[in-house]
Nucleic acid binder design. Structure first.
Length: 1050
RNA sequence: GCUGGAGUGGCGGAAUUGGUAUACGCGCAUGGCUUAGGACCAUGUUCCCGCAAGGGAUUGAGAGUUCAAGUCUCUCCUCCAGCACCA
């Protein structure tokens, strides 16, 4: 009986597909399990051997989960927008859509050939308009919430690819893709404000189960640093220089200040005799490529400005220098030079002969002599030469000096991040068009803001006059009515005052309500039933406990009010949901120390309302100014960019003649004048479309959500399906109310495996999207992925990375053709530890092939006679193997799982061959139940062959192996085998006899042998006796079930 | 430079809380089958001494703790990954 992998693998792939056994069922009562792999980019090269490593691993887990009774979602799709396809299109002159279609067909064929248990009915393609309609829609949500903005900035420009790159895509100053050195270019770019989520992204890492390396990399990337901005007054000028530092404790050692060449008034403050030099230096620095500036160990350069500033701490004069080792975008773009304790400042001071002062001595008693600088990262030390800090530990000194500087008004504590906002524009063709149009008329239009004060308030109270003035400065038209009888408010009177104003508001306008004014804003929205732009409710009075009217009317505040007014203002009639549907963005702001609006009442706010907490002593916000709120409201200021209404989505990519990007940095879409010219969806006037497209990270930032509801054409996904597949504990708390205090929501994709190369970019971006969508109420969990693991790279046989240029690429097609999919799958799982890089070895495949071949051959040796005497040892081995395989799969230790199955197979095989003489009476000794267990355990690894063997064992139409009870269904639908804990333990063990810790003999003994019995065995042992004979026995150590150790003197 | 991780046969690699180092596979050797080769089967295979019995050494190097260390502690070396003129 020969195993023909070509026919058999095809046969089962067809049967699985026809019976739909891998289709995930929405809302099934069985527990759900969402297994995810990174969907491939369908390149022209086809599948790489690296793809099956990750896909097989999750396939094993998915198949095991199904056998364990789970309703499994194991989806697949294609991340099909992006550069390689576009570049290929330019080269060949063919449309990218066509190329993509072909590549996807190839990938699909190759993936199906490997027998992965994907639910193909849910496949998504990011470049498909039915998909990117929702990518565009989601982008608009960012836009409407002020998290997408356009900004002129120096971007990383790859002159070869003619594309702007995100910081994340620049490696060592060169383009990640092609290695060309990156240039700086000024360009208007769409940005996503990921920095606003820096803390949330950091915080979220605490609640997820990611491999440590991934967490560390994300933390590094976000790079949160607590420090202080210290001001230094420039002598003879009204200018101040602000320097960020994390080591203010060393500030008594500051001897100079360095400005980066980008510093705003660097040239301006230079004294006349130095101006020329300074100008030349700044201009030279601008020409220096970013990459060159960042080279480590580069000789410091710089120029003195002639100006000085004062160190407030000791009144000393510090010269102001300019140097390109200070980077414009780090901190404040200026650095205070502490050459005694910073290696770079030290090098600079050395070169320009600036004074070097030592202010910290280490605990190792080092001298004051400085040969090389101590690192910034010094962890302990004692302050000297530092006035009131002397003798303090550096950490205590840091705290004290910060307090002191803040108290004196010389500095302000700040948090700095390395993370910067995400450049979201690409000047390329093959990406999602950004669904915005620019309208000059709407840009000039004044946006209206309605400010509604609260109980006992007026147009003159609180921060309202200040806010009105500030907003007007920014070009808003502000309405701030003083509402009638604010100490004895009557509902209809207030509404009568507000309605005529709000009636004229449109989709671009803003309502801000404080306290009772916040509650009034909600009523206003519900009554008008008209869509407006943004609503901000500051400590809205909607949490007040229901009061008894008869009690209340005795309260002088309510004198003259009626029951209706009372109810409108103080019962819970107002509906958040109803009011919420009339605002594009809606935000609630509160302060934890507000005495009237307790924090814990936030659970009454439905999802969809963004909650902002301004912590600090804000109370109920009785303050003359409120800059935090102003900043928030000002985000809603229209820039003239108008979003396309939903019914105009998707904005599809027009067909273009040429896909070649231009040197001016405009996308090929810019040449489509007919397409660019359009009507403003807001005012109907002339407008032009945005011609930038989105980066290829866009589609992959939310694909795992789309899998939950891939064919929905009404929403990006339905909430109930998200709740089912992405939900965690399923508690109400998680799904329809939010509580800022709660850390864990425990939901998301149950297990996500992917490459280490995606732990910074893709993982961070998609977490950002998901957290944002959670905040605006569109997804049920804060974090998208509950568990994240990573596979190691497959290297070429020579230990190098596989690459076309090296010519060492292994093609999975050829392996499947020659050995079959099962062999490839098992080999990739067996080749080494899953999380480590392993070189490919074509020779080693033979071992796996032999193993599977032997499993196949074993079937023909099964005994027809059911009365086989039991081999207890074999039965125990089966249970042990079951336990080990079950546990190893969970720990992704696939290589050892396969090793124990090989051991079991060898044992089964020897059972059937060892006693040919006794075969007649005993049979082969191979029981079909034991063999079946092996097939079940092996099935997730080698699904095709085991499925075929299973059928031959059970199906009456498959002689001669029909041993059992007829058709019991597919193997992939059998329950996962269980083990008996009793049988996992050994009955007999090899007791190790040691003398002084060295093994001298091994004897077989019952597993539960006692110390005394073991001691008898040990002292009777002849081999051991040789070593302890004639010596004084000092001690005997017994380890139950393992060993006995005789310890002698000397 | 900083932060993680890792160094085990000829090779890929196994070893719960410290408790039989080298599982499993590759390769190799010997034998069987074969005209031959391949495939397959059997046996052996960490290294050194020895015909064998047996003994000794051994988890990057060196020290330490312990009855017992691949595993714990310290010093050093090498490799891999991430970060890096980030103030």
């Amino acid at each position: 009986m020969k195993y023909h992998h070509r026919e058999i693998e095809k046969k089962w792939q067809k049967i699985w597909e026809e019976r739909g056994v891998f289709a995930a069922k929405d809302f099934s009562k069985r527990p759900k399990f969402y297994a995810l792999i990174e969907f491939p980019y369908p390149s022209g090269e086809g599948l790489h051997v690296g793809h099956p490593r990750s896909y097989t691993a999750m396939d094993i887990i998915a198949r095991k989960r199904r056998m364990e009774g789970y309703n499994v979602l194991y989806p697949i799709g294609f991340d099909s927008f992006g550069l390689p396809t576009e570049n290929y299109a330019i080269k060949t002159g063919r449309p990218p859509a066509e190329i993509t279609k072909e590549n996807i067909a190839t990938f699909t064929k190759q993936l199906k050939m490997l027998g992965f248990s994907f639910d193909w009915s849910r496949a998504v393609t990011t470049s498909d308009p039915s998909y990117y309609k929702w990518t565009q829609w989601l982008f608009l949500q960012f836009f409407k919430h002020g998290l997408a903005y356009k900004k002129k900035m120096a971007i990383n420009w790859c002159p070869k690819d003619k594309i702007g790159l995100a910081n994340e895509e620049v490696v060592d100053g060169a383009c990640e893709r092609c290695g060309t050195p990156v240039e700086k270019r000024e360009k208007e770019q769409w940005m996503l404000a990921i920095t606003k989520y820096a803390d949330k992204l950091l915080e979220g890492l605490k609640e997820v189960d990611y491999i440590e390396r991934a967490k560390v990399q994300q933390e590094n990337w976000i790079g949160r640093k607590e420090g202080i901005n210290i001001e230094y007054q420039v002598i003879g000028s009204d200018k101040k220089i602000v320097c960020f530092t994390t080591r203010p404790d060393t500030n008594f050692g500051a001897t100079f200040v360095v400005l980066g060449p980008e510093y705003p008034f660097a040239l301006e403050l230079s004294t006349p005799e130095y101006k020329k030099e300074v100008k030349a230096y700044i201009e030279g620095a601008k020409k220096t490529a970013e990459a060159e500036r960042l080279v480590e160990g580069r000789e410091k350069t710089g120029v003195f400005t002639g100006a000085y500033c004062v160190n407030n701490l000791n009144g000393e004069k510090m010269p102001i220098w300019i140097s390109d080792y200070v980077l414009g975008y780090v901190g404040t773009g200026a650095v205070v030079g502490v050459p005694g304790h910073d290696i770079r400042d030290f090098e600079f001071a050395k070169k320009f002969k600036i004074q070097i002062k030592r202010v910290v001595v280490g605990s190792d008693g080092d001298t004051l002599e400085i040969t090389k600088s101590e690192q910034v990262q010094e962890e302990k030390g004692t302050m000297i030469n530092s006035g009131f800090l002397d003798g303090m530990d550096i950490h205590a000194a840091t705290k004290k000096i910060m307090d002191y500087l803040e108290e004196k008004g010389w500095g302000k504590r700040v948090v700095n991040y390395k993370l910067r906002d995400w450049v979201f524009s690409r000047q390329r063709y093959w990406g999602e068009p950004i669904p915005l149009v620019f309208c000059e008329a709407c840009k000039g239009k004044k946006q209206k803001v309605l400010l509604i004060h609260g109980f006992e308030g007026s147009a003159e109270s609180n921060w309202f006059p200040w806010m009105k003035q500030e907003l007007e400065k920014q070009g808003f038209e502000v309405f701030l009515p003083t509402l009638p009888n604010s100490s004895h408010p009557k509902f209809e009177e207030w509404m009568a005052a507000l309605e005529p104003i709000a009636k004229r508001f449109g989709e671009d306008d803003i309502i801000v309500g404080h306290s009772l004014g916040g509650r009034s804003a909600l009523h206003l929205l519900s009554r008008l039933k008209k869509r407006i732009g943004h609503v901000y409710l500051i400590a809205p009075a909607v949490w007040a406990k229901p009061l008894n009217w008869n009690e209340v009317k005795k309260d002088p505040n309510w004198e003259g009010s009626d029951v209706d007014t009372f109810h409108m203002f103080h019962d819970h009639a107002v509906s958040w949901e109803d009011a919420g549907q009339y605002a594009n963005s809606k935000t609630v702001i509160f302060s934890p120390d507000d005495p009237f609006i307790p924090t814990q009442d936030h659970s009454t706010i439905p999802q969809g309302w963004c909650i902002n907490v301004f912590s600090g002593s804000y109370g109920h916000f009785d303050r003359p100014e409120y800059p935090e709120l102003l900043e928030l409201v000002a985000v809603s200021k229209s820039s003239g960019w108008i979003p396309l209404p939903e019914d105009q989505l998707p904005l599809t990519l027009p067909e273009v003649e040429k896909h070649q990007p231009t040197d001016t940095g405009e996308s090929p879409l810019a040449a489509m004048t007919e397409w660019v010219k359009t009507k403003c969806p807001q005012c109907g006037g002339e407008a032009r479309r945005e011609t930038d497209t989105m980066p290829n990270w866009a589609g992959s930032s939310w694909y795992f959500l789309r899998y939950c509801d891939p064919h929905n054409d009404k929403e990006f996904t339905a909430m109930d399906k998200l709740k089912y597949w992405m939900g965690g504990g399923g508690s109400d708390h998680v799904t329809h109310a939010r509580d800022m205090v709660t850390k864990s929501c425990g939901g998301g994709v149950d297990w996500y495996n992917g490459g280490m190369e995606h732990t910074v970019l893709h993982l961070l971006y998609s977490r950002f999207w998901n957290q944002f969508l959670y905040d605006i109420g569109l997804v049920p969990t804060r974090e998208p992925y509950k568990k994240r693991t990573s596979h190691g790279l497959i290297l070429a046989e020579d230990g190098e990375k596989m690459s076309k240029s090296r010519g060492n690429v292994v093609n999975p097609n050829e392996i499947v053709e020659k050995y079959g999919a099962d062999v490839l799958r098992v080999y990739e799982m067996f080749m080494g530890p899953f999380d480590q890089a392993v070189p490919w070895s074509t020779k080693s495949i033979a071992g796996v092939q032999r193993f599977l071949e032997k499993v196949w051959q074993l079937a023909s040796r099964l005994d027809q006679n059911k009365q086989i005497p039991q081999s207890k040892q074999l039965e125990r081995l089966v249970h042990k193997t079951t336990k080990k395989v079950t546990e190893d799969i969970e720990a992704m230790k696939f290589n050892t799982a396969i090793a124990v199955m090989m051991t079991l197979m060898n044992e089964l095989s020897s059972q059937s061959t060892v006693h040919p003489s006794t075969k007649a009476e005993l049979g082969t000794g191979l029981r079909s139940t034991q063999y079946e267990t092996l097939l079940q355990l092996l099935h997730p690894f080698a699904p095709h062959m085991t499925e075929e063997l299973w059928e031959r064992l059970h199906n009456p139409s498959q002689p001669p192996l029909n041993l059992r009870r007829g058709d019991v269904g597919l193997l992939c639908q059998q329950p996962w085998p269980k083990w008996n804990p009793e049988l996992v333990k050994d009955e007999e063990i090899e007791l190790v006899i040691q003398v002084n810790g060295r093994v001298r003999d091994r004897v077989s003994a019952p597993a539960d042998i006692s110390h005394d019995q073991a001691e008898v065995l040990a002292f009777q042992n002849k081999k051991a006796a040789k070593w302890f004979h004639g010596k004084e026995v000092k001690d005997v150590v017994f380890v139950k079930g393992k060993l006995i150790n005789i310890v002698t003197a000397n």
